[in-house]
Simulated scan of single mutants.
Amino acid sequence: MRPDALPVRPLGSRAVVPPDARAALFGTGATLRPSATVEVVRLGEVVGRVAVGAGPALALWVDATDEVSGDVSLRGPAGAVGPMTAQPVRSRFVLPDGLRRAWSVGERATVGLGAVAVAVPVEAGTEAVVEVERALWLAAGRPETARWLPAVDLASPADDPADADPTDPLVIDRRVVTETDVRQARLKHRRIQLAPGQIVTPAAQSLAREAGVFVDDARDL
Rank of each mutant, 00 (worst) to 15 (best):
V182T: 01
T65D: 10
P7K: 02
V176I: 12
V130A: 09
D160I: 01
G82W: 01
L113V: 02
L6T: 11
L187P: 08
V200Q: 05
A124G: 15
R42N: 04
G79M: 04
G79I: 10
V129W: 04
V176R: 10
T37M: 15
V94I: 14
G76I: 06
V81G: 00
A211I: 03
E127G: 12
G70Y: 07
A139L: 15
A164G: 04
V111G: 00
E144N: 13
L25S: 03
V50F: 07
F93S: 06
L43A: 14
S73K: 14
A30N: 05
R49G: 08
T28W: 09
E39G: 08
A115Q: 14
A164C: 10
A109W: 01
A15V: 02
R90W: 02
P169F: 02
W103C: 03
V200L: 11
V182F: 02
A5E: 15
V200S: 09
A54K: 13
E133L: 03
A146C: 02
V177H: 02
T178D: 04
V129H: 00
A57Q: 14
V50P: 01
M84A: 01
V130I: 01
A140E: 11
P56W: 09
V68L: 08
V130W: 06
R174A: 15
R22W: 06
